[in-house]
């Protein structure tokens, strides 16, 4: 019972912060709202007994990505920053999103999910994750590190100033 209440509270905070991200006029406020939403998702991971993923979420999203976004905001301070941040297709976009949401909710409620009784042992899923990551998913795992390296080099090359980098 108390678990349901906590889950509901986390869900409301997460969605409210996400509304803040897409509704606020200030880019910096949007970044702060995004941080709240991402930490809310990390709390959801904790409620689902996925401690490792919650930790990764806080480290990578809450730490790295938010900081990088804030850097980008500060480096792209244009004089026009006070303008409205939304474009003309806003009503159309809102309609499309409400429609998609209705569709997704209908699908989620109509599908006969083959549910299982969730285990209470957090170590079981953690052990399974680490075993899978280093057996069946070893090659994708290594390729992911290559992807990160290439993205890093690409970012450095793209942002390098000077004539030879252009």
């Amino acid at each position: 019972m108390i678990e349901t209440a906590i889950l509901g509270a986390i869900g409301i905070i997460t969605v409210a912060a996400a509304v803040g991200v897409v509704a606020t006029r200030s880019v910096v406020y949007a970044a702060v709202f995004l941080l709240v939403s991402l930490v809310g998702v990390a709390a959801l991971f904790l409620m689902m007994l996925a401690e490792f993923i919650a930790l990764a979420q806080v480290l990578i999203y809450g730490g790295a990505i938010t900081i990088v976004l804030l850097f980008a905001i500060m480096l792209t301070r244009a004089p026009e920053q006070t303008n409205v941040q939304d474009n003309a297709q806003r009503p159309l976009a809102a309609m499309a999103c409400v429609g998609l949401f209705a569709l997704l909710v209908a699908a989620a409620l109509a599908t006969p999910w083959r549910t299982r009784d969730p285990g209470a042992d957090p170590m079981a899923e953690f052990t399974a994750l680490s075993e899978l990551l280093f057996s069946d998913f070893l090659i994708p795992f290594e390729i992911a590190s290559l992807v990160l390296l290439v993205a890093l080099i690409g970012a450095v090359v793209l942002t390098r100033s000077g004539r030879e980098g252009a």
Binding site: G11, T14, V15, A18, V19, V21, V22, V27, A30, S37, V41, L44, L69, A72, I73, T76, N83, V84, Q85, D86, N87, Q89, R90, L92, A93, A94, A96, C97, V98, L100, F101, L104, V105, A108
Partner: peptide, 22 residues
Amino acid sequence: ILGAALFCLGLYGVLARRNAVL
């Protein structure tokens, strides 16, 4: 439903926002 709400809010942001960082 929570995930669907988050996804649709993100989709709205992608479609309606003007600032590339947003």
